[in-house]
C-alpha cells in the first residue's frame, strides 16, 4: 500500500467541524483574491491569516510535507523563469529603475524586479495553506457533497467520490499484475532501456485496463440497480449541514475579499508601489 501524498486525518478542531462546502468556498475566494491583488500589504495580511488558520487546524508536517516541498520546488523554478524571460518586468510595472548590481550577460538586477518576484512568492504562500486546509481537514466522503453544493452537477461530483473509492483497488490490481508479469520476465526495473520500458508498460496497462473495465461494469450495474441517476437532485449522507460558524466564515471571507480588493484598487491599480 503506497502512502497517500495528502491524507485526511480525523481531528476535532473548529476547522474540521466546518462543512466541506464552507472550506471549498473559502479556498476558492482566497485563491481569487490572491490572484487578483498584487498589493503587498494585502498579501502579507492574507499570509498571516492563512498560516494562523492552518496552525489552528492542527495539521502535522507528515500529512503535507511531501506536497509542500514539491510546491516549493515549483515556486523556485517559476521565480527563476520569470527572471530569465522577463528580467525588467518589475521596472515596467513600478515605473522606476533602481539598480542593485550587474549580473553576467549584461543583465542588471533591479530592486523593482526583486520586489515584484517577492510579491509572486507571497501569492504562493497565501494560497498554499488554504489548499491544505481544504484537502486535509475535509472528510473524503464529504468532497462530493461539497462540490455538488457549489453547483457542480451531482453525477460529476459523484465521480470524484467513486474515484476515491476505487483508487486503492486499482493500485492493488496494478501491483498484482506488475508482479505476475515480472515473474514472466517482463521487468520494469532500471535494467531495461527507455523504449523497452515503454513497450513493456503496455503489458501491464492492458490487463489493468481490462480488469478495471470489469470493475466499472460491475459498479455501474450496482449503482443503477440502487437508483443512481433516478432524480434530478440527490442528497448526501456525509454532507454536513451549514451551522452558525459556517455562515460566519462564509460572510467574513466574502467581506474580507471585498475589503481586500477595494483596498488594492484604491490607488488605481492592483500593485502597491513603494518606489514612488
Amino acid at each position: 500500500m503506497g502512502r497517500r501524498l495528502i491524507s485526511y486525518e480525523e481531528k476535532d478542531t473548529w476547522i474540521h467541524r466546518l462543512s466541506g462546502f464552507t472550506k471549498l468556498f473559502f479556498f476558492l475566494l482566497w485563491c481569487v483574491t490572491s490572484a487578483l491583488t498584487f498589493d503587498t500589504r494585502v498579501l502579507i495580511v492574507m499570509l498571516i491569516a492563512g498560516v494562523a488558520i492552518f496552525i489552528s487546524s492542527k495539521t502535522t508536517w507528515k500529512q503535507v510535507g511531501g506536497v509542500f516541498q514539491a510546491i516549493l520546488l515549483f515556486m523556485v523554478l517559476n521565480l527563476l523563469f520569470i527572471f530569465i524571460f522577463s528580467p525588467y518586468e518589475g521596472t515596467g510595472i513600478y515605473g522606476t529603475w533602481t539598480e542593485v548590481c550587474k549580473l553576467p550577460f549584461g543583465v542588471k538586477l533591479t530592486a523593482e524586479q526583486l520586489f515584484y518576484e517577492f510579491n509572486v512568492m507571497l501569492k504562493y504562500f497565501t494560497v498554499v495553506p488554504s489548499v491544505f486546509i481544504f484537502l486535509v481537514t475535509t472528510d473524503p466522503s464529504e468532497f462530493a457533497a461539497s462540490l455538488n453544493a457549489i453547483g457542480v452537477p451531482y453525477s460529476i461530483a459523484y465521480s470524484v467520490a467513486i474515484t476515491l473509492r476505487y483508487i486503492p483497488d486499482v493500485q492493488d490490481d496494478f501491483s498484482r499484475i506488475r508482479n505476475a508479469q515480472a515473474a514472466r520476465g517482463i521487468e520494469m526495473g532500471k535494467k531495461a532501456n527507455i523504449f523497452d520500458r515503454i513497450r513493456r508498460t503496455a503489458n501491464i496497462i492492458f490487463p489493468l485496463l481490462f480488469s478495471t473495465m470489469e470493475r466499472i461494469d460491475t459498479v455501474s450495474n450496482a449503482m443503477e440497480l440502487r437508483g443512481f441517476g433516478k432524480k434530478k437532485k440527490r442528497t448526501w449522507y456525509a454532507g454536513k449541514k451549514l451551522s452558525i460558524p459556517d455562515y460566519i466564515v462564509i460572510v467574513s471571507s466574502l467581506l474580507f475579499m471585498i475589503a481586500a480588493l477595494l483596498f488594492t484598487w484604491m490607488d488605481g491599480n492592483r500593485f502597491y508601489n513603494p518606489f514612488i
Binding site: S141, A161, R165, D169, T218, F228
Partner: peptide, 22 residues
Amino acid sequence: DGQFIGLTVAEDIAFALENDAV
C-alpha cells in the same frame, strides 16, 4: 467487492436513499 460503492459502510447502505433524495 465490486458492488461496494460508498467510501464507508454507512454511505454504502445509504446510497439508494441518497439517490431518492431522502
